[in-house]
Amino acid sequence: MAKIRIPQNKVEELRQICKSFNYDKNELINVLHSAQKLFGYLPAEVQELVAQELNVPLAKVYGVVSFYSFFDMVPKGKYPVSICLGTACYVRGAEKVLAEFKKHIGINVGETSADGKFSISCLRCVGACGLAPVVTIGERVYGRVAPDDVQKILKDYY
């Protein structure tokens, strides 16, 4: 069992989450969603605890976490920037927008900036294709983003 480095009260909360799903193995993905909401990501200890509580081999939990792109094992930035690279956004130039974000924040996809402020990820369609290209920062959705808008958008977060 790995040393739990996560705060004890959160461990308790995680146990409660597992309990609220009746320790049902079928609910693993829902449990992981809740856990990720709680911790912001899914570090090894969290996966271990979930494995233990739901009585699923840890290997299988990790197998699931690494399968689904929604689950992260490293913390995201305070403002997670997601650029949609779905088809609609792609044909309307999302790649250029992505390049612009990478340039301005100075990190690559999947990375978090040194100050922990931004992280960049790509996603495939948030269903707002009508507004392509679409970028989300946290909960906020930006539509019809042109490369030139990027600097302006980022200003709000500095």
Binding site: T87, A88, G127, C129
Partner: peptide, 12 residues
């Protein structure tokens, strides 16, 4: 699940 990027019928 509507995973097809560029489709948003089900969401709507």
């Amino acid at each position: 699940d509507e995973g097809d990027p560029g489709a948003f019928m089900d969401r709507s």
